[in-house]
Design a protein around this nucleic acid. Structure first.
Lengths: 237, 237
DNA sequence: ACAAAAGTGTTCAGCCTACACCCATGG
DNA sequence: CCATGGGTGTAGGCTGAACACTTTTGT
């Protein structure tokens, strides 16, 4: 857990925050990493330093929470409504004693109206050991179709990311970090069905994927379950 | 021309600006509205008021420059690099005497690092009589493939919008405000070719468009040029 | 009548779809 | 040897590309 002792508001772009929807694939479901403060959950987020690009700020959030650099990270959307003024909500969860021990030059730093720039990242859940920061009390991976109560409009942000994922996989087919480096066609097939929330013909799927010429066949996998052993594939370099 | 006498920096979200690429279709080319300050051009833009959503700020810019409300306006992208610090450039064009007569409580208001949220709008050029604001000296519609020297990274923003237009017309086919309410298929064909920068088979085009069932055929157009008179169409309500 | 412009038809290839069938493996 | 699951084949339908043909109209 990171130790922060003071915040100088002038180091950051005011009233601008960055939230990152960190998603992975586990147990046949798309999951996203959420943090708990009090009785509700929220997205990992942060602020943009004066000397930092917005993109870098998002990378920092991702790195802080996952320990990993250079993951698949893309811009999602701007959340900039005027009624996006969650003063009461923020004040509620800012009653945290951890916060009281931190020096902040600007007492309203947290409670102003913010414009949020959201990003989304795809990661390998098994490779990640999330870290708590100074305000959040717990982390957990949630199935994006079974989200808990969340602070502010963070549920909207997650759902936006979840929909974007559909467009992405339709265009790119590939898995980024949602599958291990080597994977089987049935696994890829399963992933596509879960993301698109629709059944896809197995035969057509295999042929369409191989026709893209993006995948490379490797030796067969030894299996323990009954039935024919599938080939392994990887994304061509 | 709008008269501004003073600026209170606290009324706006700091270090956040909104630029709008206003595009139209005229003389067989996609054009965009630019403003001149000194010897270079820039996009119409503005800031986000504290009580205003980002979207509303973009609408204001559009309305201020075109006099029209409710035009087709969509989010484009974030421009948020850390080296996006155009202090020298801003200072150069802020030597404008018009600015000296305006009271600003924060002398650095214009010259800080900004994160820009860009939007793009599609308008009917012939319906618009652009207005100058307090800093810009001249407005002009430029063919997006023949842009002049521009301030900061505004040329990148225009090119991003120009590319986005391709995706949009591929998905939606329709014209928004780029053609008059009633138009001919040859005109629509021409527009698609210009936007996509590629020749499209005339026959295929007509059939594909009619197959979408988005268009409604109206009585024929009386023409003056030689050749058969085309039908008029409009987008179905 | 002719050229130019708009609208329609025809053919062919390729792709998507659905389903059937064949292979490999563990119990 | 059969149930299970992976891989491949095929017939039918749809769609898109290219090009030919017909219709309309000004000169």
């Amino acid at each position: 857990m990171k130790r922060i002792t003071s915040i100088n508001s002038k180091d950051f772009l005011p009233q601008l925050s960055v939230d990152v929807v960190i998603m992975g694939y586990q147990d046949g479901a798309i999951k996203c990493l959420l943090l708990r403060i009090k009785d509700k959950w929220l997205l990992p987020g942060g602020y943009v330093e004066q000397k930092q690009s917005v993109e870098e700020a998002a990378e920092s959030v991702l790195e802080l929470r996952t320990g990993l650099k250079g993951q698949h990270l893309k811009f999602l959307a701007v959340f900039g409504s005027a009624d996006r003024d969650f003063k009461k909500e923020r004040e509620a969860f800012l009653e945290n004693p951890a916060l009281k021990s931190i020096e902040i030059d600007d007492p309203d730093f947290f409670s102003r109206r913010y414009v949020t720039l959201s990003y989304y990242a795809l990661v390998d859940i098994d490779k990640i050991h999330p870290e708590l920061s100074f305000l959040d009390e717990e982390w957990q991976w949630f199935d994006v179709s079974k989200l808990p109560d969340m602070w502010m409009d963070h549920k909207d942000i997650v759902m936006t990311a979840r929909e974007r994922l559909k467009d992405d996989i339709r265009q790119e087919h590939i898995t980024h970090n949602l599958l291990p480096e080597q994977f089987t066609m049935p696994a890829l097939h399963q992933l596509h069905q879960v993301i698109l929330e629709t059944p896809i013909d197995r035969s057509r799927f295999q042929k369409t994927m191989l026709a893209t010429d993006k995948f490379e066949r490797l030796p067969k996998l030894k299996k323990d379950s009954p039935g024919r052993s599938p080939y392994l594939y990887r994304v061509k370099p």
